[in-house]
């Protein structure tokens, strides 16, 4: 269920534009203009909305998870990146987390061997995660060549790097292979590993299938079912310069690719994919361990009912006196 339904959903999402633009030409306006604008709006404002929703809740306590030596005596070396006390150190910790997945790098695997638990190295998830996210980013940025008329040198350089080996024509992008491999690994892992399958939800499979479909449709379009790429850029530029046009000669495969991306954009703010924004708001990572150095303020701190010393002494005065303890009232 939780695997099959998301798969069927993605198949339907592929078929929609495929039939749409093949059968009724006019739907190009819908798939090429209406949906993309809606998707971008939903993504941008949905994302901002979600972050603001999180931001509305305060962080009442200073609760970093410390993963290294605290700052204490001057001769004890503080682990500045794993147990930060200054903002710069926190920034360093966050950069490690966001750019190279520091925490996931610690991952290891527990097994029962010969009647005892042993902990083995397990870097595959980290590697696949890193490969997936970085290739996704690379591919995303690379696509800027469709969105700016004079493509900046930096983007061209990136593309040069990505197709460094100059295999085939059009040149083969390494990131295409990497993202396919990584997403497939993440998918297979969810199906194959019993623990991961047990914890997985439909919402975990859907984005994987969707991203896989996006990558495959893109690869098919670049290398196999080619389309009129100049027209595609005309359409793209038309969209981003708020002057949309539907040029002639764009194949259905393009609309499939575009539609799936639009679905991803619209799905993004309302799903677990928001971890992209959420990681920056995670109090266990983005706070300095300085709560003994400066007082941390909880905006909703309120007075509570306590058992005062006076009440305590009233309860035990005789016993205290007998035991030779000083009392306030005789």
């Amino acid at each position: 269920m939780k695997t099959v339904l998301p798969f069927i959903a993605v198949v339907i999402l592929v078929l929609l534009p495929l039939f749409g633009v093949t059968v009724a030409h006019q739907t190009q306006i819908f798939f090429g203009v209406v949906v993309p604008y809606t998707a971008v709006a939903v993504f941008v404002f949905g994302f901002i909305y979600r972050i603001l929703q999180w931001g509305k809740s305060p962080v009442p306590f200073c609760i970093p998870t410390t993963c290294g030596q605290q700052k204490s005596l001057p001769w004890i070396k503080q682990d500045k990146l794993e147990n930060p006390v200054t903002t710069m150190q926190v920034v360093g910790r966050m950069l490690l987390e966001v750019l190279v997945f520091r925490s996931l790098f610690r991952n290891m695997k527990t097994e029962m061997k010969e009647g005892k638990a042993v902990y083995g190295s397990e870097k595959l998830l980290w590697l696949a995660g890193l490969a997936f996210h970085w290739s996704f980013l690379f591919i995303f940025v690379r696509h800027y060549r469709f969105f700016v008329q004079d493509v900046p040198t930096a983007i061209q350089l990136m593309e040069g790097m990505d197709s460094f080996f100059q295999i085939g024509a059009p040149l083969f992008y390494m990131t295409d292979a990497v993202i396919l491999g990584a997403v497939t690994f993440l998918l297979v892992r969810r199906v194959y590993l019993p623990q991961i399958r047990y914890i997985s939800l439909a919402a975990d499979f859907f984005p994987l299938f969707l991203i896989l479909a996006i990558a495959i449709s893109g690869i098919l379009m670049r290398y196999f079912f080619k389309t009129h790429i100049v027209a595609v850029k005309q359409l793209a530029i038309g969209l981003v310069s708020l002057n949309p046009t539907i040029p002639e000669g764009i194949g259905a495969i393009f609309y499939v690719h575009l539609f799936l991306i639009c679905v991803l954009l619209m799905y993004f703010p309302f799903s677990k994919l928001m971890h992209m924004g959420g990681v920056f708001l995670s109090p266990t990572r983005n706070m300095a361990n300085d709560s003994r150095i400066v007082r941390y303020i909880n905006p909703w701190n309120y007075p509570v009912h306590v058992h005062t010393y006076e009440e305590y002494e009233d309860d035990f005065r005789e016993k205290m006196k007998k035991a030779g303890l000083p009392v306030e009232k005789e």
């Binding site: 929703q53 999180w54 809740s57 305060p58 996931l104 638990a117 677990k272 971890h275 109090p283």
Partner: peptide, 27 residues
């Protein structure tokens, strides 16, 4: 509405499973 940690942690888990075998009770 009072704990950002609670709210964010309800939303952003991707169920990658890295934590699965780290709990002493599970082990």
């Amino acid at each position: 509405s009072k704990y950002r940690s609670f709210k964010v942690f309800m939303d952003i888990c991707v169920r990658c499973g890295a934590c699965a075998d780290k709990c002493h009770f599970f082990i």
